[in-house]
C-alpha cells in the first residue's frame, strides 16, 4: 500500500490534498509529470498530476477535485490509510527553459498542476507573472504557494469576491497589451485553456497547455487518451500531457471527456447513497 502521510481539505472540501509515500516515484518525478492511482482492488485507475515531490522524504503530493465516484472514494482515504496502487512518474516532463517573461495561467485544480511548473520557470531565471482564477474567494487554492513561486500574482474570481472580478482571460489580455511576453502556460478547465490559447495566438505568444483526457494505462498501450494536435492524433499519456496550445482540438477533447458521463453519474449516485 502507498500510505497517505498528510491530508488537507481545501476549497470547501471539494479539493483534497494527499501527500503519499512513494519513494521511487518521488526520486524520479519532474514538474509536469503525473501518476495513476487506484484506491482498492475494484478501483478505477485515475491520473493525477503531481503538485509536489519530496525526494528526501520519499513522498509525492497530489491535489484533486472531487468530481465523480473515484475521486469521492479517494476523499474517504485518511492518513495512515492509502492507495493500493500508485504508478509513475508518467508523461513527459515540462520543458523548462529561460526565455524571458512567462505568463502562467491557472484555473481550478489546474493551479495545483501549474504550481511546480511556475516554480521551476522562476528558478531558471524567468520573470513569471501568474494569473489564477476561481469561482469565488473560498474556492481559490494555493494562493500563498503561487505567490512565492511567481514574481507577480494576479487573482480573478467569477463573482468578484476577491481580486479582479471576471475571467483570467481579461487579465491576460491586459498583460499582453502592457509588454512583451515570451511564453505562456495555461492549465485548468478545457474551456479556459481554449480561450487562453485563442488570445495568446493573437499576440503570437507560444503557449503550453496540459491536457487531461480519459486514460486507462498511462503507458501508450490503449489509445484511450488520444487527442488531436495540429490535425494529428497523439496519445496524451506518452506524447504529452503537455502540448502546444495553439494546435489542440479543444472541442474534440471536451466531447471525448463526456464518453462515460451517463454511466459515471449512476456509479457516483450509488456511491453517495451508500456513504449517507
Amino acid at each position: 500500500m502507498f500510505k497517505i502521510v498528510k491530508r488537507e481539505e481545501m476549497s470547501e472540501g471539494n479539493v483534497i490534498l494527499n501527500e503519499i509515500e512513494a519513494p521511487k516515484i518521488a526520486a524520479k518525478a519532474r514538474p509536469g509529470q503525473f501518476v495513476i492511482l487506484k484506491a482498492n482492488e475494484d478501483g478505477e485507475r485515475i491520473p493525477l498530476t503531481m503538485a509536489d515531490t519530496d525526494p528526501q522524504k520519499g513522498t509525492i503530493t497530489v491535489i484533486y477535485m472531487v468530481v465523480g465516484k473515484s475521486t469521492a472514494l479517494f476523499k474517504t482515504l485518511q492518513i495512515g490509510g492509502g492507495y493500493q496502487d500508485v504508478i509513475g512518474p508518467l508523461g513527459k516532463a515540462t520543458h523548462i527553459e529561460k526565455v524571458g517573461t512567462v505568463v502562467c495561467v491557472g484555473g481550478g485544480t489546474g493551479i495545483a498542476v501549474l504550481h511546480p511548473i511556475t516554480r521551476a520557470l522562476k528558478e531558471v531565471g524567468n520573470h513569471v507573472i501568474s494569473i489564477v482564477g476561481a469561482r469565488s474567494k473560498d474556492l481559490l487554492i494555493l494562493e500563498d504557494q503561487m505567490k512565492a513561486a511567481s514574481n507577480e500574482l494576479r487573482i480573478c474570481t467569477d463573482d468578484g469576491s476577491y481580486g479582479h472580478h471576471g475571467f483570467v482571460t481579461e487579465v491576460l489580455k491586459e498583460i499582453l497589451e502592457a509588454g512583451k511576453v515570451d511564453q505562456a502556460v495555461a492549465i485548468g478547465p478545457v474551456p479556459m485553456m481554449k480561450f487562453v490559447s485563442l488570445i495568446t495566438k493573437e499576440y503570437n505568444v507560444p503557449t503550453m497547455v496540459s491536457l487531461n483526457p480519459i486514460m486507462v494505462d498511462g503507458t501508450g498501450m490503449c489509445g484511450g487518451c488520444r487527442v488531436t494536435i495540429g490535425g494529428q492524433t497523439k496519445f496524451a499519456c506518452v506524447d504529452g500531457p503537455e502540448f502546444d496550445g495553439h494546435q489542440v482540438d479543444y472541442d474534440e477533447l471536451m466531447t471525448r471527456l463526456q464518453a462515460y458521463c451517463e454511466d459515471e453519474k449512476k456509479c457516483y449516485n450509488e456511491f453517495c447513497m451508500l456513504e449517507e
Binding site: 472514494l73 486507462v216 498501450m221 490503449c222 456509479c267
Partner: peptide, 23 residues
C-alpha cells in the same frame, strides 16, 4: 482500440460495473 476495450473488460473487470468503478 481492442487493447482499451479488453483491458477495461478483463483487467479492470468493467463488465461488473457499477460494482467495480471502471466503465
Amino acid at each position: 482500440s481492442a487493447n482499451e476495450y479488453l483491458t477495461r473488460a478483463n483487467l479492470m473487470k468493467a463488465y461488473l460495473f457499477p460494482e467495480v468503478d471502471t466503465p
